[in-house]
């Protein structure tokens, strides 16, 4: 089949409604993904932070270790929420529940379903970020009024990872493949300047880390919450936006060729 241009997905909101309806039966699961970064913040941010005290953030400024770690965990929580939804849950719907086969028999098209799923995943990531930023405020870890933009920045991080997750999930054949995705995320979470600055790496490795999407997300959110705002952040925004757009396009094209046989 020739690839037609993708239709504008005006009915994507229907998938959000559907997921919200299903979610009401199973709302407890949302907490597991939220609690984890908060625990990291308490355990490492404050625990290790009591040993490290301050950390330099580029332009001569130093911040407390907890202030340094918190935005990284905020970006990570956006990633976690988005990626969990767009990998495990999407795979279940695609492979086992056959949810989309029923959906695409209606005026809701494959493009609507894809974008709707991505938006839902962003929503879950955003919920985590908002919860996390409230924790940060409560603990006095916000160092700049720019932090007001940290929430939309986290939504952008969620978009990039939701789209990446959805695109990857279209290639997944079995549950074990999802573990591979998790396996790739784990080192990215640990080493994307989450817990220590990227300056500790040798130049080649540093370049590699700087090209990972989570590093970009962390750099962006950290810049906003610590007040280290510069033009570099626009680069992060562009990176994440492009990644999200590519991901969602791949996901829609692959789902279409898979569902519209």
């Amino acid at each position: 089949m020739s690839v037609r241009t993708l239709r504008i997905p005006t009915r994507s909101v229907r998938m959000i409604e559907r997921n919200a309806m299903a979610f009401r039966h199973n709302w407890m699961v949302i907490f597991s993904g939220f609690v984890e970064p908060v625990l990291y913040l308490l355990g490492i941010g404050f625990g290790i932070g009591s040993l490290v005290r301050t950390i330099p953030i580029g332009d001569g400024h130093t911040v407390s270790y907890a202030v340094f770690v918190a935005p990284a965990l905020m970006a990570s929580s956006a990633m976690n929420g988005a990626i969990y939804e767009s990998t495990f849950n999407l795979f279940y719907k695609l492979r086992y529940a056959r949810t989309f086969e029923a959906v695409i028999s209606t005026p809701v098209g494959v493009e609507d379903a894809t974008l709707g799923e991505v938006m839902w995943a962003i929503g879950r990531g955003s919920l985590y970020s908002v919860g996390f930023v409230i924790v940060m405020l409560a603990l006095g870890l916000v160092a700049s009024p720019w932090a007001i933009l940290a929430v939309p920045a986290s939504i952008l991080v969620g978009f990039a990872f939701a789209a990446l997750g959805a695109a990857l999930t279209t290639f997944v054949r079995q549950w074990q493949d999802l573990d591979i995705i998790q396996l790739a995320l784990q080192p990215m979470f640990l080493f994307s300047a989450t817990f220590f600055p990227v300056t500790v790496y040798p130049p080649a490795l540093r370049l590699l880390v700087e090209w990972t999407p989570l590093y970009r997300g962390i750099d962006l959110v950290r810049g906003l919450t610590t007040g280290g705002v510069g033009p570099g952040l626009l680069g992060d925004v562009a990176y994440l936006a492009v990644m999200g757009l590519i991901g969602v396009t791949i996901a829609a094209l692959r789902l279409r060729s898979r569902l519209l046989k």
Partner: peptide, 20 residues
């Protein structure tokens, strides 16, 4: 291919939404 995550009635209500 009913929606296994929804109840019987919800299946119909949600399907109605798909038709706007």
């Amino acid at each position: 291919n009913l929606d296994l995550e929804l109840t019987v009635r919800e299946n119909l209500i949600m399907y109605a939404r798909y038709f706007d």
